[in-house]
């Protein structure tokens, strides 16, 4: 019973972390839109006095448009993530899971002065819980980002042979994902570390 409660609590905590990060990002989007809308108002006052060149208006409105796109991306990822527990077992496209995990972990990485690169040219589909696959990938990305810091970007790559998600820190940086081995097992996978800066989530036959 305690194990079930602990596991449920860990899942909730992960949901909380993802939501807190996304809403913090959205606050920044709104703050930028707010400031640039205010700037447009200021510039309109200048225009009334004939002291304005049109490029300043274009620049401010372009910033607003960029932030609308940024906000749309955050909400889309959050919505994708919110639907991951809808079914316990489904076909999980590893490329989609990698992109979602990278997007959800981007702010965590940014706060550690690193970034996340994705390579989804090769992919495979596995049968399982998308929520658990994404949770596992995010967990490893966070450990890798914690270790990498300013050494360079971390990466996540989907591969078809083996059927896996590979998470890597820059060479010379080591990280240990073994604490997430039980989570990998519950997601129908195992963790394989062929080098100190590299951990692969290897899935069984699709």
């Amino acid at each position: 019973m305690d194990t079930v409660n602990t596991d449920g609590r860990e899942r909730l905590k992960f949901f909380g972390r993802v939501t807190a990060s996304a809403t913090h990002d959205l606050k920044n989007v709104l703050a930028i839109v707010n400031e640039n809308a205010g700037l447009l108002e200021d510039l309109c006052l200048l225009a009334e006095r004939g002291q304005l060149t049109p490029d300043r208006l274009t620049h401010a409105s372009g910033r607003i448009r960029e932030q609308v796109n940024r906000g749309n991306g955050i909400i889309r990822r959050l919505n994708d993530f919110a639907h991951t527990p809808d079914v316990d077992e489904t076909n999980v496209d590893l490329a989609e899971a990698a992109l979602l995990a990278a997007g959800l972990s981007a702010r965590f990485a940014q706060l550690r002065e690193t970034s996340i690169e994705t390579d989804t040219a090769s992919t495979a589909t596995v049968r399982g819980s998308k929520f658990e696959v994404v949770r596992l990938a995010c967990g490893l990305l966070e450990i890798a980002a914690d270790a990498a810091k300013t050494a360079g970007p971390v990466s996540i790559r989907s591969t078809a042979a083996p059927t896996a998600l590979e998470i890597a820190a820059p060479e010379g940086v080591s990280f240990d994902g073994s604490a997430l081995a039980p989570l990998a097992e519950s997601a129908g996978a195992s963790l394989d570390s062929s080098a100190p800066h590299h951990v692969a989530i290897v899935f069984g036959d699709a």
Partner: peptide, 16 residues
């Protein structure tokens, strides 16, 4: 602030 688009717009508005 690490959000450049926020802080640069704010600086411009404060200058006005």
């Amino acid at each position: 602030d690490d959000e450049i688009e926020l802080i640069s717009a704010l600086a411009e508005r404060l200058s006005f």
